[in-house]
Design a protein around this nucleic acid. Structure first.
Lengths: 253, 253
DNA sequence: CTAGAATGTGCAGAAACGTGCAATATCAAG
DNA sequence: CTTGATATTGCACGTTTCTGCACATTCTAG
């Protein structure tokens, strides 16, 4: 086992299990705790994890991540959600991605609206209980902790069985040249699978996402109907998007 | 369980339940109250909580509004959950039914337990995000509002693809002659489908369910491994259940 | 006021840690 | 193929941290 491989494994474990115990990994890989601790020390120095007594935790704790994200730009998310809500008409079938912005969209929906919502996010599904006239369909599969959605092979397969008018897509990066990106490969594939099942895909991008780029590509900008954002219309990045023929809905009046 | 993780857990509990009782957490995590108290002392020193006799409260009183939720959750459900938790061993695959009792079971689970949980309840799935070492699998389908679980043909079909060691079943009626019953026909069918996928089915029945009968039959008592309840062992109904060969686990010591 | 529970402190054993060092593996140049 | 430089790994040892217990003290309910 190469040292670099081992570090990847450690990061992977941090992402999926939320922690690494030095003793456990050492035993599992058949080498000394010293080596594991050395790796963790280097990862921590690179800012990729947080060392604690006994092992390490994610730099941005996977569990806390969701709560923390909820507090990032809440006003911006609410404004984007309010604008995106106008795209949803009675009778439509809409796929909602996971994430805090789409959750804000649920809260922004009129309680009496009559439509079908399909989602792979347990959080979104639970939030929709308060809307009795909405028919809710949950896409099952393995739960991916970081953003609290189902993904993986089973989820993609389940997604093939549905079709919808709209897909409200959340990503962590919207960039004029790099397109739409997110932080996890499996999640990116799931988003693509969902986009393929909807007639139109709209991207919800609160202000901090516009111009950002994450590691894994989701879709090129040509494949979406447009972007709903809170970024000022005259910002350079927004103008660049418009210049590429992307339909940009802003919250400005 | 890492010490740093334990502090995260304490903060999480403070945020979601509005309080922490040192004795409870110590028992749950299987370590001494001293350690919990030490943690709480340090968190208090960092201004992250407020120590009180017996445990701690959130530092900011705004969060304490959730205290209400805690008090409406009947102790009976918590006791049943604590007893049922002992049936779950590391490495098992467990199907969790929806409902408040199974949700209490999730809260009672040791955070570091290493097992697989399969559920058709988005609420349960979302609650399990706090348990990084548990692999969570969500059964998709149409959302049935009353108890916030997926059911219907698609959900039953998805359930066929899984198998488990245990099924923790929640019903609204446990009766010596009428067996297990619930309030919705579709939901009853879903519960049957799940029971068929597990080696053993245990019924979680808080005190008000024992002796009650609802409209739709779920399973006969012969088909379950046993009942976990909070009802007194010497109650007539419980004796009648035992007389029928039902294995009854009570919370009495 | 009193009994029982919760608390703080000091202490000791166990576990984890960092550092220095030696053995081994890897690799490039000669 | 050999040699020397470099990196990796495991071990030893002294240090730090964590944890549970004992005991004296403080707090709360009745």
């Amino acid at each position: 086992m190469l040292a670099a491989q081992r570090k990847d494994l450690l990061l992977d474990r941090l992402a999926t299990r939320g922690r690494v115990v030095a003793k456990e990994v050492a035993e599992e890989l058949g080498l000394s705790e010293d080596s594991i601790r050395r790796d963790l020390r280097e990862l921590a120095a690179a800012g990729l994890c947080q060392r604690v007594y006994g092992g390490a935790l994610p730099a941005s704790p996977a569990v806390a991540a969701y709560d923390v994200r909820e507090s990032v730009e809440p006003d911006s998310k609410r404004r984007v959600a309010a604008r995106a809500r106008e795209l949803i008409q009675p009778g439509m079938a809409v796929i909602l991605d996971g994430g805090t912005t789409t959750l804000a969209l649920v809260h922004a929906l009129p309680p009496e609206i009559d439509c079908t919502i399909i989602t792979h996010s347990p959080t979104i599904a639970a939030a929709l209980v308060g809307h009795p006239s909405i028919e809710v369909y949950v896409i099952g599969g393995r739960l991916f902790r970081h953003s609290v959605v189902t993904s993986g092979a089973a989820a993609v397969e389940a997604a093939q069985a549905i079709s919808a008018d709209l897909f409200m897509l959340g990503v962590t990066g919207v960039h004029p040249r790099r397109g739409l990106t997110t932080g996890d490969a499996d999640e990116a594939a799931m988003k693509r699978a969902l986009a393929a099942r909807a007639a139109d895909t709209w991207v919800l991008a609160s202000v901090e996402k516009v111009g950002a780029v994450s590691r894994y590509p989701v879709l090129p900008l040509e494949d979406v109907a447009g972007v709903v954002t809170d970024a000022p219309l005259d910002a350079a990045v927004v103008q660049e998007l418009v210049g590429q023929g992307v339909d940009v809905l802003t919250t400005e009046r």
